[in-house]
Amino acid sequence: MENKNNLLSAEGRRAWMEQYNRSIHREGRIWTLVCLGALLAVPFLMGMVLQAKTDMNSFLKGFFNVAIIYYPTSLVEYLIYVPMLGSGASYLSFITGNLSNLKIPCAVNAREMADARVGTPENEIISTLSVATSSLVTVVVLALGVLLLQPLQPVLSNPVLTPAFDNVVPALFGALGLKYFLKGKKFAAIPLVLSCAVCILVPSLIRQTSVLLIVIGALTIGVSFVFYKKGALDE
């Protein structure tokens, strides 16, 4: 069977790939739907275990604040990454996560090693193999890590460590901030100084970070647009 297929003519190869792509979309949609259903069920199942209820008003408020930032980001990622990955790897990547920090560089690396060009059947196949492998390795490493974390649970819940876990968010935005301020160094000082000044002068805004980050985020995009139009961002 395989030997026979290896001898496919160019036309036969094209027809075979078309059929393959059709099945990738059909099966990709089914798997995506099933996985999304399972992921959405998790909070409710956890609620049953914890005997807790979802507060729908708080959920809608939180979801709006998150969606206004992350849905446009998802759209941009989707438009950029799909042509790089091909269909099969895209279905997998958007379910398995860690896209920009892991799956994309991994797929690009595999593609370069295989010398496959973007948009070809070879790229489609290599990217899918690469993303699937990367996801499986991540799952194995995390599962082993979580097993090893079990004996450390009493340590992790020690009150001495409370300041560490209460400051996860400042730790993230300090580290991430430096990285992004370096990337946008020509305009980063404006939102940073403005945000600090506003929060010092109007302390009630300190607890309104979800509103603040939408306003400051929009303002920064506006500032970067002005810089871009003036050619100040040319490298």
């Binding site: 930032i69 968010v169 400042p170 935005f173 300090g174 991430l176 901030g177 992004y180 301020f181 990337k183 946008g184 305009f187 980063a188 939102p191 940073l192 403005l194 945000s195 600090c196 000044a197 506003v198 929060c199 970070t209 603040l212 980050l213 306003v215 400051i216 985020g217 929009a218 303002l219 920064t220 995009i221 970067s224």
Partner: peptide
């Protein structure tokens, strides 16, 4: 950048 600036602010 805006998001990080908002938090650091």
């Amino acid at each position: 950048v805006g998001m990080c600036a908002a938090y650091i602010g």
